[in-house]
Simulated scan of single mutants.
Amino acid sequence: MTEGAGSTATEACAEHVPNRKECQILSAARTQFLEQGFADTSMDAIARAAGVSKATLYAYFPSKEALFRNLIEIECSQKCTDVPEPDFGAGVEQALRELCGHFVARFLTKEWAAFFQAVSSERWRYPELCHLYFNSGKQNVLDLVSNYLEEAKARGLLAIDDAQMAAEHLLHLTVSDLPMRVALGLDLRSEAEYQRVMESGLAVFLKAYKA
């Protein structure tokens, strides 16, 4: 399930930030934050890792918080950029299986999980960054999934009244406790077990919403 789960951090940055120097800084900062943590990473260290002067660094990002905020926004956007296109030709169950498998794979990807933990570890000192991650990331995903469900409804495959609520149901049922385990740094269940949980959750969802 984790194979092909996402592009590297550098590729993700380049996709969302066309300016090469800015992308260079963001990629270096991301590595520093993951290795040292947000609080223990200095702007001096980021400038050295990026191979730029502090003046150049501050020209792009006036503070460490602003830099981290940019990384969060990229992460939230990138989470939805390589989602498989809905193919309802093989049936709604298979289409939703591929969709949910994408998000389960995200949490099972070490690099993505590490960034998620880096954000959650700052919840007491920088709660606004956690709010940004939660609100932007959640809304991006909900919008994408609800669009899938609206298309399935238009094809007569699902019977839903509130696509956003149905999207929340689908994600909670199929992703289960995976985000919480990642955030808390707990041992994850096996990939096979998460596959079983996802299949079970998908069956429950279809029992409730399938037309």
Rank of each mutant, 00 (worst) to 15 (best):
residue 108 L to M: 11
residue 107 F to A: 09
residue 104 V to P: 01
residue 112 W to R: 15
residue 123 R to W: 02
residue 111 E to L: 08
residue 107 F to N: 07
residue 147 N to L: 10
residue 129 L to G: 00
residue 140 N to V: 09
residue 144 L to E: 07
residue 100 C to L: 06
residue 125 R to I: 06
residue 105 A to H: 00
residue 143 D to K: 11
residue 141 V to A: 03
residue 111 E to S: 15
residue 135 N to Y: 12
residue 107 F to R: 03
residue 141 V to P: 03
residue 145 V to R: 00
residue 120 S to Q: 13
residue 143 D to S: 12
residue 138 K to Q: 13
residue 99 L to D: 00
residue 109 T to Q: 15
residue 120 S to N: 13
residue 105 A to V: 03
residue 128 E to Y: 03
residue 139 Q to D: 11
residue 113 A to M: 03
residue 108 L to S: 08
residue 147 N to S: 15
residue 108 L to D: 07
residue 120 S to L: 10
residue 99 L to M: 04
residue 146 S to C: 03
residue 117 Q to A: 14
residue 102 H to L: 01
residue 137 G to C: 06
residue 117 Q to S: 13
residue 141 V to K: 06
residue 129 L to C: 05
residue 112 W to A: 08
residue 120 S to W: 10
residue 122 E to Q: 14
residue 103 F to W: 08
residue 103 F to C: 04
residue 133 Y to I: 02
residue 148 Y to N: 06
residue 124 W to I: 12
residue 113 A to Q: 05
residue 107 F to H: 11
residue 113 A to C: 09
residue 101 G to T: 04
residue 106 R to F: 14
residue 126 Y to S: 06
residue 136 S to N: 12
residue 125 R to T: 08
residue 127 P to V: 05
residue 118 A to G: 10
residue 112 W to G: 02
residue 122 E to I: 07
residue 116 F to G: 09
residue 126 Y to N: 03
residue 118 A to Q: 06
residue 146 S to M: 04
residue 122 E to L: 07
residue 99 L to E: 00
residue 98 E to R: 04
residue 108 L to N: 04
residue 106 R to P: 07
residue 126 Y to K: 05
residue 103 F to M: 06
residue 105 A to P: 02
residue 130 C to I: 11
residue 104 V to I: 09
residue 98 E to I: 01
residue 102 H to D: 01
residue 138 K to W: 13
residue 144 L to T: 09
residue 111 E to N: 13
residue 146 S to H: 02
residue 100 C to P: 06
residue 148 Y to I: 02
residue 123 R to V: 02
residue 100 C to F: 00
residue 133 Y to G: 01
residue 134 F to A: 12
residue 101 G to M: 03
residue 112 W to N: 12
residue 119 V to A: 03
residue 136 S to I: 13
residue 138 K to G: 11
residue 140 N to A: 10
residue 134 F to I: 15
residue 138 K to L: 14
residue 120 S to T: 12
residue 136 S to K: 14
residue 115 F to G: 06
residue 146 S to K: 03
residue 145 V to N: 02
residue 129 L to R: 01
residue 137 G to P: 05
residue 110 K to R: 14
residue 144 L to C: 11
residue 106 R to K: 15
residue 110 K to M: 11
residue 128 E to I: 01
residue 145 V to D: 00
residue 114 A to M: 09
residue 124 W to Y: 13
residue 105 A to I: 01
residue 107 F to K: 04
residue 101 G to I: 01
residue 146 S to I: 05
residue 114 A to T: 10
residue 144 L to K: 11
residue 100 C to T: 14
